[in-house]
């Protein structure tokens, strides 16, 4: 694997209305890596991704994508980036064909080229008959597949997936996981945010754990395991985020359901 640097983040900080969300983060990401980007809710995962994508501009520090500072480079670097947003924002009044034509052309592709690719892709995703249907009529899984197609149609080099598997059935999940492995082997870089630890553990060749705006762990799963002496990523996650009361809380919840007196 070549050691070409795709992304470098130096001292990245951002705060919203006084609350510090990211606190001097440093990261280097290399070509061909699948990075599992994890952390509790509100740790700053999506915020990091939004900054890299240029959705937020009031940050301090430096973000370099493909070797150039995104502050003064304009927007051309986005051509090589693919993104599946966390909330699944999509113009659902359009048909699948129209939506992908739109995003594809925004990435500078030719309409004919987009159409050919899309037809092939939809067929592989078992959605061939959905080409001219409106996205608003799609099921959650179909929408998610369309978002994945939309993020990859221009063959990007750096891919941000924010919970890309939500709503997909087990078979589609296997396809996407395998696809990510092939893409990474080809030299694409994938930034994968998720709360489902089993998947992150299996597919990532590097795991970055964010908590309270700081990077608290960074390394392969084996390295993390060695350091923390825990068996699964889930357990490591719990340990590193200082969360060890799940048994007590679960017991309290059940007690509350039964109407018992609290034993806190």
């Amino acid at each position: 694997m070549s050691q070409e640097k795709v992304l470098q983040i130096t001292d990245l900080s951002i705060s919203f209305t006084g609350k510090v969300v990211l606190d001097k983060i440093n990261l280097e990401v290399y070509r061909g890596q699948i990075i599992g980007y994890i952390g509790p809710n509100g740790a700053g995962k999506s915020t990091t991704v939004k900054i890299i994508l240029g959705l937020l501009d009031r940050y301090r520090g430096k973000v370099e994508v493909f070797g150039e500072d995104i502050r003064n480079k304009g927007n051309a670097y986005k051509k090589r980036i693919g993104y599946v947003p966390e909330n699944g924002e999509i113009y659902d009044d359009l048909t699948a064909f129209e939506y992908i034509s739109f995003t594809g052309q925004m990435y500078g592709m030719e309409p004919e080229d987009i159409k050919n690719k899309l037809i092939r892709l939809l067929e592989k995703f078992d959605m061939a008959e959905s080409l001219h249907k409106r996205v608003s009529t799609f099921s959650k899984g179909m929408k998610q597949k369309l978002l994945i197609i939309s993020s990859l149609i221009h063959d990007p080099d750096l891919i941000f997936f924010d919970e890309p598997l939500s709503g997909l059935d087990a078979n589609s999940v296997m396809i996407i996981k395998e696809m990510m492995t092939i893409l990474a082997a080809e030299g694409k870089t994938i930034f994968y945010s998720s709360h489902i630890m089993d998947v992150v553990e299996k597919i990532s060749n590097r795991i970055i754990l964010l908590a309270d705006g700081n990077v608290v762990a960074d390394g392969t799963f084996d390295q993390l395991k060695e350091k923390n002496k825990e068996g699964t990523l889930e357990q490591i996650f719990n340990q590193l985020t200082g969360f060890d009361q799940h048994e007590q809380i679960a017991a309290d919840i059940v007690a509350a359901l039964h109407g018992d007196e609290s034993n806190e």
Binding site: G54, L55, G74, A76, Y83, E89, I90, G108
Partner: peptide, 15 residues
């Protein structure tokens, strides 16, 4: 339309 932000701003076009 808040979708604009996630859909348009991530594409290579200027603000």
């Amino acid at each position: 339309d808040v979708r604009d932000k996630a859909i348009l701003d991530t594409k290579p076009v200027t603000a």
